[in-house]
Design a binder for these strands. Sequence first.
DNA 1: TGTGAGGGAGAACGTTCGGTCTCCTTTGAT
DNA 2: ATCAAAGGAGACCGAACGTTCTCCCTCACA
Lengths: 198, 198
Amino acid sequence: MNRGTRSGKPSEARTRLLGTATKIFYAEGIHSVGVDRIIEEAQVTRATLYRHFTGKEELVLAYLDQADQGIRAQITGALSPDASPEDDVRAAARAIADGIRSPGFRGCAFLNAVAEYPDPDHPVHRTVLAHRQWFLETVTGLLGRAGLEPADAAGRHFVMLRDGAMAAGCLFDPELVCETFLSGVESLLTTGAPVPRG
Amino acid sequence: MNRGTRSGKPSEARTRLLGTATKIFYAEGIHSVGVDRIIEEAQVTRATLYRHFTGKEELVLAYLDQADQGIRAQITGALSPDASPEDDVRAAARAIADGIRSPGFRGCAFLNAVAEYPDPDHPVHRTVLAHRQWFLETVTGLLGRAGLEPADAAGRHFVMLRDGAMAAGCLFDPELVCETFLSGVESLLTTGAPVPRG
DNA sequence: TGTGAGGGAGAACGTTCGGTCTCCTTTGAT
DNA sequence: ATCAAAGGAGACCGAACGTTCTCCCTCACA
C-alpha cells in the first residue's frame, strides 16, 4: 500500500514531493541530487517519501511521467480543430519554441535523463524511448495530414530539428535557436521533406 | 608536480587511466561511475590516480579534452584541399554519420556531459560551451566557403541537424537517423539555409 | 469512539563516495 | 652510486548515499 491515498486523493505531501523532485531533477540532473535534498526542499520527512514511493527510482519515473503529461498537453493544446494541418504544425513548433524561450529552460527532460541512464534495459531509459516514440508518431501524423510526402521522413526531420533545438536551447542564445528551429520547420512545410539522393 | 612526467613522456599508467576513464565515462555517464571503478579497470592504484590528476573533476576535463581532440581530428581529417567547399561539407557530414553508425555510439560526449553539469559556471559546462563554439565557427566557415548565405544561419542550421542526429542516434535506428541527417545537410547545400519570413 | 492511514521527527543501517595517507619497490637519469 | 619520481598495496578519513526503522501525533471515517 505504498502509492496514493486510500481514498484516491493525491495526498498533499505527495504532490509537494513530486513537484519538488520535478523542479530539482530538471534543473540539476538526477544522479547529482540526493533524496535528502528533495525531502528538505519539499518540507517532508524521509519516511513520507518512502510511504509514497518505493525508492528514488520510482520518484524519477514519476517525474518523467509528469513531464510526459506536460508535453502531451502542450502539443495537443496547441492544435486547433479549425486550423489547417500546416498551421497545426506551425502551432506545435511555436509551442516548442516558447518552451525554449521560457526562463528556467534547461533542455529536454528526456534527453537529459537518458544521458544519465544509458542502459537500454533500465526503466528510465525505456520510459524515455516510449515518450519519444509517441512524439515521433504524433508529429508524423500531423505532417502527414499536412500533405508532406513521405510523412515518415518529414516526421523524422521535424524530430531531428526539435532535438537539436532542445539540446542547444540552453547552450546558445535561445532566441537564435528558436529562429533557426522555426525557419527549419517552415522550410520543411514549404519545400517538403529532404529525401536521400535528390 | 602532479601532471605528466618530469621527462615529458605521457606515462603509461596515466594513459591507461585516461583511456579507461574515456571509455567508461562515455559509455556509462560521469556521476554514476566512481573512481574505484576506473582505477580497477585501468589496473592502477588509487594513489596513482591522484598523482596524475588533482581529482575526479580533472579526470573528467581530461576526458572531454581527449574527446575534443578526437572530434577536431575527425572533422579536419575529412576535409581535402582538392575538394570543393560543398564536398568538404558533405565529407564532414559523412564523418559525423559514420560516428553515429559505429558500434558503441552513445551520443555526443559533450551533450551527455552537459546534461550532468547544468551549472554554467562549472568548468565542465564551460568546456562543453567552448567545444561547441569551435564547432559552430568551423562549420559556419565551411558553409560560408561553400557560398551559403547567410553563413551564420547555415552554420546554426547544420549544428542543429547534427545535435539532433547525435541525440537520436542512440535512441532510434542509427541508419534512419543518418539518412535523415545527410538528407538535411544535402538540402541545406542545394536549397540554401532556411531564413525567417521567407 | 476507536482504528488506521498520513505525516512528522529522527536515529540508525550498510555502502559507496572522493580523497589522503603511509610504506615499499622499481626505475631512470645524474 | 644515488636520489627522486612513478607506481603498487592498502589502510583510513569524513561525508553522503539510499534505505529502514521506531515512536508519536493528528485527523477522517466507520
